[in-house]
Design a protein around this nucleic acid. Structure first.
Length: 501
RNA sequence: GCCUCCAUCGUCUAGCGGCCUAGGACGUCACCCUUUCAAGGUGAAGGUCGCGGGUUCGAAUCCCGCUGGAGGUACCA
């Protein structure tokens, strides 16, 4: 059992470079769960130090995605907080980072590097040509006196500020989920002098996130697995700055469905907003994501938010990768949909019906009532709310008269189908009031089956196709009454024309 | 290439030295229910616990090697 000291402060710090994808949501979720379980704070910070990849609106989009899944934050760009602002570009404008870079410069733990990117690639190429397997950049200026560096800078030569990484020894850190008891150790000669401040004056991730984590009093860093390789730099930076490092926990990656590589928003259709667009329930997504890299025991899967918060522990976070499994998510979504009341489902599917043009916007009370009567017919058949329009469209709009091919049931021909449908039309016409008379209608058609010596499957099938122009539809008699006597009879009449002799 | 991490049914996972002839879930298949499709019920197939060595009376569980996979190797995060 890992002992976590309260109070904890954790954060999710995405960079606004596009839609938030499922992997990002999972990282945010685990941080949130950690904070809520241990009664600490969870904050959101926007890391927009990459001017080139910045996408306008991405920060808002990502907050929408997080809220959708049910992740709220105690401090953040939109709500502020005692350690704000929570956007790095703004913090940089306020001069948050430079003093610390200067502190390192003064202490001789960082240096101004005048080596250009071109020169660097050149140096790499030369090293490679000479057979040096792994080129680890250490700037020639690292041994210059600070005065000489400042002199160059004063002449207007562009420079970056690089961390002076030791060439010898090793750097070690512990991780709550990986590396075992001994933690992770890396030889310093595997490291290179990373850039802390770009020549534009903008801090790089390593610098910015670390300063912010310290200033914002972050106690635990739960982040994606891809950061373990750069954690040694962070450990070094904490030492150089004289700060205590937070506790690290690197979360397992979510691999693509084929297991080849991490989930990526470019190659995989996994941006969070895609899921609510298709009719995934936030609760289902929450529950599914919870299980990507964490488990409670050997059999419990369906859990409420409160239960997960109560049960979450970092000990049970998996160190091996999870794999994106849409089929499992789909199944879970179905479970959550079935757990809803039909009234709630009716409300939930309405936007999808509107989007499909089946229902007016705003929806009038009469249509809303109709949707409510239709919903029970498809409720348990729904795995994505977005499937509702295709399941219900024939209730809202005219159908194409079915072809003879789809209309004629198994082991029957046009002649017998025609005879059957004529009989159906007559028998059904004889029932004057259909409202609530599903049983009467059923009895009527079953009697007809006996008279015509047909199996229910055959006769019912023909009627189903006649009224819906589809072979798969909701239960027949509920469909009939929901459609209404007049429309249903008209459709049957139209259909029997198709198989007329 | 080098460095780091990871390794149980197709997939997600339980398992932290004897309860394991390895449990659950998704998916797949069969049967039942049944007017189609779902849902529900029952059941089945599916893992020599990546491979090879150790340690131990005893290993999926501990150690070593190998293999495989992932991540990193940017003035991106």
């Amino acid at each position: 059992m890992i002992d976590i000291k309260s109070p904890v402060r954790v954060r999710f710090a995405p960079s606004p470079t596009g839609f938030l994808h499922i992997g990002g949501v999972r990282t945010a979720l685990f941080n949130w769960l950690f904070a809520r379980h241990y009664g600490g704070q969870f904050l959101l910070r926007i890391e927009d130090t990459d001017e080139k990849r910045f996408v306008p609106g991405a920060a808002d989009d990502l907050m929408t995605s997080m809220r959708w899944v049910g992740i709220d934050w105690d401090e953040g760009p939109d709500i502020g907080g005692p350690f704000g602002p929570y956007v790095q570009s703004v913090r940089n404008e306020q001069g948050v980072y430079m003093p610390f870079a200067n502190q390192l410069l003064d202490a001789g733990l960082a240096y101004m590097s005048f080596t250009t990117e071109e020169e660097l690639t050149q140096m790499k190429a030369v090293a490679e040509a000479r057979g040096i397997k792994a080129f680890r950049f250490r700037g020639p200026e690292r041994d210059w006196p600070l005065a000489k560096q400042q002199e160059m800078a004063a002449r207007g030569v562009p420079y970056t500020i690089r961390l002076k990484v030791p060439s010898e020894g090793s750097t070690h850190f512990n991780d709550l989920v990986r590396g075992g008891e001994d933690g992770i150790r890396i030889n310093n000669n595997e490291l290179y002098d990373i850039v802390l401040i770009k020549k534009t004056g903008m801090p790089v991730y390593h610098m910015a996130h670390l300063v912010d984590d310290h200033l914002m009093q972050i106690t635990h860093v739960l982040r994606s697995d891809e950061w373990v390789a750069s954690t040694p730099y962070h450990v070094l930076l904490y030492q150089y700055l004289g700060w205590n490092a937070p506790t690290f926990a690197h979360l397992p990656p979510i691999l693509r469905q084929d297991g080849h590589g991490k989930l990526s928003k470019r190659k995989d259709d996994v941006s969070a907003n895609r899921f609510w667009e298709r009719g995934y329930l936030a609760d289902a997504m929450f529950n599914y994501l919870t299980l990507q890299g964490w488990s409670y025991d050997d059999h419990t899967e369906i859990m409420t938010r409160a239960e997960v918060v109560e049960r979450f522990s970092i000990d049970r976070v998996q160190s091996s990768p999870a794999r994106w499994n849409p089929a499992k998510l789909l199944d879970m979504n179905g479970i959550y949909i079935r757990a809803m009341s039909s009234t709630d489902v009716a409300v939930a599917i309405t936007p999808f019906l509107q989007k499909a043009g089946l229902v007016p916007t705003p929806v009038d009370s009469k249509t809303a009532a109709y949707v409510a009567t239709l919903t029970p017919l498809i409720h348990e058949r729904l795995k994505e709310l977005g499937e509702a329009p295709e399941l219900l469209d024939f209730f809202f709009s005219d159908i194409e008269t079915p072809s003879a091919e789809t209309l004629i049931p198994k082991k029957m021909d046009a002649q017998s189908t025609h005879t059957a449908l004529v009989a159906v039309h007559a028998a059904l016409s004889a029932v004057a009031e259909w409202q609530g008379q599903e049983a009467t209608l059923e009895a009527t058609l079953r009697t007809l089956c006996e008279q015509l010596e047909l199996k229910p499957g055959q006769l019912f099938g023909a009627v189903r196709v006649a009224i819906s122009n589809r072979t798969v539809a909701p239960p027949l008699f509920e469909t009939l009454t929901a459609l209404g006597r007049e429309r249903a009879l008209a459709r049957i009449a139209a259909a029997l024309g198709v198989v007329a002799p």
